[in-house]
Design a protein around this nucleic acid. Sequence first.
DNA 1: TATGGTCCTGTGCCATGCAAGAGCGTATGG
DNA 2: CCATACGCTCTTGCATGGCACAGGACCATA
Lengths: 245, 245
Amino acid sequence: MNRAQSEPKWGSPRPEAGRGSVQARVIAEMRRRIIKGDIEPETPLSELALAEEFGVSRTPVREALKQLQTEGLVEIRPRVGTFVTTPSRREITELFEMKELLEGAAARLLAQRGRVPEIDLLERNLREADAAVERDDRGRYAELVQEFHDLLIAGADNSKLGAHYRILMNQLAYSRLINTSLSQPGRALQSDREHHRVLELILEKDGDSAERVMREHVRASRSALLAGLPVNRDSQARPVRSQDG
Amino acid sequence: MNRAQSEPKWGSPRPEAGRGSVQARVIAEMRRRIIKGDIEPETPLSELALAEEFGVSRTPVREALKQLQTEGLVEIRPRVGTFVTTPSRREITELFEMKELLEGAAARLLAQRGRVPEIDLLERNLREADAAVERDDRGRYAELVQEFHDLLIAGADNSKLGAHYRILMNQLAYSRLINTSLSQPGRALQSDREHHRVLELILEKDGDSAERVMREHVRASRSALLAGLPVNRDSQARPVRSQDG
DNA sequence: TATGGTCCTGTGCCATGCAAGAGCGTATGG
DNA sequence: CCATACGCTCTTGCATGGCACAGGACCATA
């Protein structure tokens, strides 16, 4: 395993992710896998194995895992190993509390901003979403829901809010959960209506109501999700690593 | 610079921070320095220099800086150097928006929880704060203000909220700013009164009002701060590094 | 059989060496 | 005098190797 340059090694098709530093690629790829759920939560994640797989040395892999730890996606148990974290029941509750908080605030902020480009995109999103619901295209609707929420956050025009929101959603692996939520009968239609109501209030510049309705929407979404979760798979409550200050 | 073990090297008094891994010590110490403001914002942090100062190799220093980057405290410019970040005017606004959001939510959540131990601590905190204001002890009052807000967050009983809040306050270097805010004439007394009002509403379990008043308090604090800031030291607007997803 | 100690293997942690990019001073040509 | 290009130095990025510790398997013993 020498110079990655002189030994390309992945002759296999690797269309994307060629740019940037080595560890940036590793971080992005690992994050993608974890969020997508490709990695079993209990069998992890050896620096050496990952290094060999990516054709790099252990150093960038190690730094990548360290960053993913601070993002809350993996847990590094010293001298033992690195494992993907699965949020406990309680953490899921906490994460949804935060989701409700941030998305509600985003709705309020967007309402205060007046007509910005994100508004147009949201309107277009809802038109497409209506069509998807109409033809019962659940997969497409899930994508549009994600886009709706992302547009809302982007429209808040607060980069800090956006950054924290992204970390939150990654920890929740929300892109997986949303399908569970939408599998509840009638949930898609109701969700679509709630989205419409929120956007209406935003257009009316009624920030207070927009926030309130948005928060109710998040709670409804959470209920639908929990109702659809398979069992009470209660993850172990890891000790919270104090981060000092 | 060999085995740290075989070459103790720090015969000099190093009373604290002996436990934990090397990089944990480096992270904690660097974070402390940055927040305390010991480091000039433009002087580069050289891995090598820090490694020598701490008596360790570059590797743990490097990983520590990487973590501090994800916390938003430093910026690593590839192949150039590492620098402590100073939030731009806009970022300060955004951070205060988030602070208002999180502390308001914490007040609401705490109000909903009923009588928990943090309530007692808050009451004791306010008694001490009254005394500090009475004798015009601004230094002690600043500490108590910080404790008040920390207790509020802790009382919300949401570890995710606490974690995000901590990152936020570190980015703001709030422990420095608070002194500026309190240097405004009459601000300490007013701040103390606002704290009392918030706790009253919490005791009445009036979550809505507690959140509202708390948010107003944060805004007032922000105004007092901005009024006391020296000049319009507008930091360079760094390009936001996209974190992908 | 149950139990205690010991060794072995795997892991992350740290030190170090090499190479490439960025920035800057300087020399050189106009 | 000015502009440009060269090269030097300093920086981080990555690779590699040694080390210490955790955890479990194994064996000896009661």
